[in-house]
Amino acid sequence: MGVRINLEVNGESYEREVEPRQLLVYFLREELGLTGTNVGCETSLCGACTILVDGQAIKACTQLAVQADGSSITTIEGLATNGDYHPLQQAFWDCHGLQCGFCTPGMIMAAADLLQRDSSPSETEVRQALKGNLCRCTGYHNIVRSVMTAAEGGS
């Protein structure tokens, strides 16, 4: 017994019938094939699944697909424009802000949310804003540097 939902993902409109209990992250990954959004904990604690819903960062592992009906979603796959990296993508590359890359999409989306709200955050503000996103590889050092660099470039 599916529920019909309409939503926009990365600028494209989709109409799909979904199981009411399907998590948004599995809808994106398994129905739409957008596997850039990762699942690390299924309890909204690691942040690997962070996406933007109507411009706000949310954790897609604890939201149902049906809740996203009528909304506009951006995932890591939709962040670049016309083939140009988003300043955060560029900065993560330039500053070695990733190692294994598993947390990276969520980390970049959470940082994108921050920079929308505050275009020139301090290091402390960046660290506070990213505390819901876990990285086991980088010790956050270069992630923070990446976000600060993207902010400087964008202001």
Partner: peptide, 10 residues
Amino acid sequence: EDPDLITGKG
């Protein structure tokens, strides 16, 4: 390694 991983293609 990074271009794939910062775009969700990895």
